Structures are given as C-alpha cells and as structure tokens.
Amino acid sequence: MLPTITTIGGPTALLELGGLRILTDPTFDPPGDHPVGPLTLTKTIGPALSHADVGRVDLVLLSHDQHPDNLDRLGRRMMSAAPLTLSTPEAAERTGVTPMRPWQHHDVGRVRVTAVPALHGPPGCEPIVGQVTGFVLTGDGLPTVYISGDNASLECVELIAERFPAVDVALLFGGAVRTPMIDERLTLNAADMVIAARLLKARYVVPLHVEGWTHFTENQADVHAAFSEAGLGHLLVSPTPGRPAPLVPVR
C-alpha cells in the first residue's frame, strides 16, 4: 500500500506509512531571519500547517540538526514531543536523539528505517557543514521510500541504488543551496534530481526543500522544467502544501 504524503514547507513532510505518522526535518517557525554563525539565513514562507495542526507523530526522521532550514525552534518543540527521533551521531550528541550511522537500521512497528549516506556539499565539506544522513524505509508489504536529506552527492545515491534497487517513492531534497561560506552546491539541483530519480528507478518523486529560503537558488518550477525536459514529468508528485495526497499505483 502506497503512503500518503502531506508537504508542510521546506524539507518538512508528513508521511503516513505502515500505520505510522512519520515527520521529516521539522520546520514550523514563521518567516524571518535565522543566524547561523557568521551567516544569516532568511526564511520567506511559513509552514502550511502548524505543529498543532499536524497532531500525533510517531517518528521523526531528522537529516541533521545544525541548520535552521532543517530544524528550527518550533521544530525542536515538535521533535521533543515525538516518542522517537532518528538522526546522525552528531545530532544525538547535541539533542539526545537516537543516533544512526550509514547502513544501520532501526525497526519501528512494521517499518524498517535504514540510515543511508549523504553529503551536504562537495567532498571534504563535513568539517564546515557537519554530518547529514538520508533514510530508506522498507517493510513487508510496504513500498520502499527514500528520503534524501540535504544530500548533494550522486555518488551516495548510486550506493543507495545498489542496496535498494527498486525505490517506489523518492523524497528528494533540492534547491541547489549555496551560501557564502562554500561557493558550491550544498544540495541537489534540478538536473541532479532527474539523475537521482533514474538511478533509483523511482516510481514517484516528491520534491522537498525547494522553496521558502533565500539561500535556495532553484525552486519548484526549475524541478518541473528539468523533469519535463527529461521526459519524466509523470514521476513528479507535488501536493498542495498542507493537504494529504495519497499516492496511487501508476504501473
């Protein structure tokens, strides 16, 4: 049975799968400035749902905790109310969540969560940007779901595709993020999202992390244009933010 997905804004989505309500990278603050060391990141679009609107959450999948466009003040409050949050070892040291290293798995009800590699920028960027992780969700009778997190590496996607050769739903974080600290892309751009979809043999692609912040250099329109040009526009699922979108079989 395919999941139901509600996009909320930025990297935040509610995934209903295997009887669980799973939240990705909680961001619920209103628009405004967020200092990050010497930088200030500016949020331009608020969430489609408040943390109160979302209601019960069984599991939070946090790609990383160190950047406010993936975890903000109200997101931390939402995360603290959830019974389980899985993230990186660095995030666990700072926040007390449950740590996972690449290829480790954690079973939650019917759903097996496997942490998968991700790189938040070019090789060697980790001392500046920190650890980040992606996730793959599997289970008996359930679709395979990939959540990329803030990954910029197609090499990581290739490794994931080798272990999980048939991905039903890919939640790809894009936006082609750039900041003055690293003048290279810190997340996938639209063209790389197309390549990732092909590598994963994805049946559906849900673009996340493509709107709402001034340091994102691409948006939903760029993603749709790239997939359309590649003849893969039929793969895209872009639900109206805040409205649950059940996925239906396409083949």
Rank of each mutant, 00 (worst) to 15 (best):
A230V: 11
L188I: 03
W213D: 01
G96M: 01
T133Q: 09
S80G: 04
T85C: 09
M100R: 14
V136Y: 10
G19E: 07
R76D: 07
H51L: 15
L86Y: 05
H106P: 00
P89Y: 11
M78C: 13
T114P: 08
M181R: 12
D53M: 09
E162R: 15
A170R: 09
P122H: 08
A13N: 10
Q220C: 00
T217C: 02
A230Q: 11
H34K: 09
P246H: 03
T214M: 03
L186M: 13
V145E: 13
D107S: 14
M193K: 11
L142Y: 11
P31V: 05
G242M: 01
P143M: 02
G32K: 03
V177E: 07
V97K: 08
P122M: 06
P165K: 09
H224D: 11
M100Y: 00
P47E: 01
T85R: 05
P207H: 06
H209T: 05
L71Q: 04
F135V: 08
L142F: 11
G121P: 06
R163Q: 08
T12P: 04
E229M: 11
V248K: 10
V145I: 14
P3A: 09
V157H: 04
G149E: 00
L235A: 10
A190Y: 14
T214F: 00
L247P: 00
P35E: 06
A170N: 10
I45C: 01
R251T: 13
P127M: 07
V60D: 05
P241R: 07
A197C: 11
G134R: 14
V54Y: 01
P117H: 08
G149N: 09
R21H: 09
L236S: 05
V108Q: 03
D58E: 03
P207Q: 07
L188G: 01
L199M: 13
A81C: 03
G175L: 11
P89L: 11
I5Y: 12
P249M: 12
L159C: 01
T27W: 00
W213V: 12
S238I: 14
N151Q: 10
A115F: 02
V250Q: 14
A226Q: 14
T44N: 07
E229A: 15
L84T: 06
D140I: 04
M1N: 08
G18W: 12
R56S: 10
P180T: 10
T114E: 10
G121H: 05
M100I: 07
D183F: 08
V116L: 12
D33K: 15
P207N: 02
L62V: 05
P122Y: 05
G174K: 12
D140K: 14
R178D: 01
S238Q: 13
G19D: 03
W103P: 05
L171V: 15
R21G: 03
R21C: 01
L84P: 04
A13S: 14
T7P: 03
T95F: 06
R76T: 12
L62S: 05
D168M: 04
R76E: 14
N219I: 00
V113I: 15
V108E: 01
R56N: 02
E211T: 14
C156F: 02
G233W: 12
R185K: 10
R110A: 15
E155Y: 11
T133E: 01
R163N: 06
Q131G: 04
A92C: 08
L39M: 14
V206K: 07
L74T: 02
L188R: 05
A230H: 14
G175R: 08
P249A: 09
L188P: 00
R110T: 10
